[in-house]
Design a protein around this nucleic acid. Structure first.
Lengths: 316, 316
DNA sequence: AATGAATATGAGCATTTGCCCTTATAAAGA
DNA sequence: TCTTTATAAGGGCAAATGCTCATATTCATT
């Protein structure tokens, strides 16, 4: 008895690689045309097949090189913008997923640190199922939201399940109620060991949030409106796993930062630190993070890349 | 001015990755629907997009593992058979191409040795264009046919052009007219240095020819009908770059082998030696080559794999 | 055994796609 | 400048595809 995914993979193989029509496949596999179509569509939705672009689009490459040069990044991926689509940033998310897969495909065991946020969640959704029990995924940021529930885009457990890796979540709120509470929490033995693991990670993937109207930090209920205003007044423009920084990428002293319980991405030692972020609203935050050297790599899309490089003045 | 391939890649990206229809793409790129279709089709035919199967098909994996175990191979790739199709062996050719790409994608310089034949030619046809000036491609076999022309599926120059690597052809006939001539030719300085490079190759890809009715060696005019009969009488069942071996994979003494000017694959030191071969007619030759340890890896298809393992008795 | 939920299968139909053929446009040569 | 020729764009149509709805089947539960 052959499994369902096996049939799906076989049908997809015949369809994409051998170039058969669904009718022919149906004939070969002795099923109806509809079933063949369903198998192929299953293979696509389960990501048993992968379509990749071999040809680097010159314009995107150019933007990526410019960003690398300007901010001294180790890696930069710019994907084509899907202008005007509902799925903003889809391209960047797709290439982030592929980059994650590449790291997880490594032979030697990898410690991968992960932030949270919508982009990150969307990216791990696109990671193909794999089997990598040797790798470890570690969270940079607490998974407890303000009301005590453990929601907030649970990136790490989803990815861990999908790739069958061990994972180390952080049983913490994102922002503690006081700096004293933060101190107590981060001194817990379990938290300390997870944080230590995170700081030594081989690679970290994080989202970047903007600080301003509709800041994700506020929208997701981690800080109050008053706190957000305070951060803006203090020069905050962006945030990574809760740590707010100004336009130079310098982490603000005090304010909510005094109570953020997550691992600051700047504290990671040695490993690659890759940001995944797109969107006009985020451009200033991304530029600041790059300027401050908070990350060593960026995955974004064409439109955002132009904004980061300075409002398209370099275009043409 | 953006290049044509750039547009093709962009259209293909929108089509395959972003999931747009050709109409939407046409709108976005301000071209007609037909033009969008042409761009996508160009991207496919130029292999700017690549579809790969992430999910290993259980049956193929099982066959591959069986073959590895039985013959002590380092690697074995079995792709789904496209039974009854005109394109026999398409799957194996496709995975051979991918394997070649993987080697060429290596960071450190690679010396890759190459045989000839229809399968090899078809495989390199499918290799994506790359830019690897650090790698060296070296021929195992002469490119001069019996009548002095340099045809015979010119695998190496084609691949070298496609991936922009240096290459070292062998300015030799496949089978010299006498063993004396063979000795003279192989002692030429240029030939000796190419052969030395080949013997030290990191990896070799070769086809396997059968020896029997319609043997490729005969069909391509490298040996006469009488010589073929002689080889068959002497127990020859298969051939790699012209060196004929018996059912145990032992190279025949004398006969045409005394005049074969190519580098015997068994003389390669240390590197991987991978055969690409499919088809019922070749099964015996493949089995012999594996049994004799002439190669360390095999790329074939499901149907051939079954034959190699013994007429499908192990099936189900 | 009966019931109901969940899942798989099959038919019909609107969209989408691939391709042939005609027409336009551009490059090359006289 | 006027052909000639090659190359690209558009129109139209048959084939292929994706999707929805109705029906059958399986499986667990009572």
């Amino acid at each position: 008895m052959t499994g369902k995914f096996d049939d799906a993979a076989r049908a997809a193989w015949l369809y994409f690689v051998a170039g058969k029509t669904q009718d022919e496949i149906a004939g070969k596999m002795s099923v109806s045309r509809q079933t063949a179509q369903r198998l192929i569509s299953l293979a696509i939705s389960e990501r048993l097949v992968r379509v990749t672009l071999e040809h680097p689009i010159a314009e995107c490459m150019r933007l990526a090189d410019d960003i690398c040069a300007r901010f001294g990044l180790a890696t930069c991926d710019v994907s084509p913008s899907d202008a005007g689509s509902a799925q903003a940033g889809l391209g960047a998310i797709h290439s982030a997923a592929r980059m994650i897969e590449r790291w997880l495909g490594s032979d030697k065991p990898v410690v991968m640190a992960l932030g949270t946020g919508r982009s990150m969640r969307a990216a791990v959704d696109q990671v193909a199922a794999m089997d990598c029990p040797a790798h470890r995924l570690v969270s940079l940021v607490g998974n407890i939201s303000a009301d005590g529930s453990a929601s907030y885009y649970d990136v790490i457990s989803y990815l861990a399940g999908r790739v069958k890796a061990h994972y180390y979540p952080m049983p913490l709120p994102v922002v503690a109620r006081s700096s004293e509470e933060r101190r107590l929490l981060t001194e817990l033995a379990t938290v300390r060991s997870v944080a230590a693991l995170a700081r030594g990670a081989d690679v970290a993937f994080v989202g970047i949030g903007h600080v301003g109207p509709n800041a994700p930090l506020r929208e997701d209920g981690f800080i109050s409106a008053a706190e957000l205003d305070d951060l803006i007044a203090g020069g905050g423009v962006g945030e990574i796993v809760g740590w707010v920084f100004d336009r130079d990428g310098k982490v603000l002293a005090g304010r909510t930062n005094a109570r953020v319980a997550s691992v600051h991405v700047g504290d990671l030692t040695g490993g690659a630190r890759i940001a995944v972020a797109t969107g006009a609203k985020k451009a200033a935050a991304i530029r600041a993070a790059l300027a401050g050297g908070l990350v060593t790599g960026l995955v974004t899309d064409e439109a955002t890349a132009r904004l980061i490089l300075g409002g398209g003045k370099r275009g043409k």
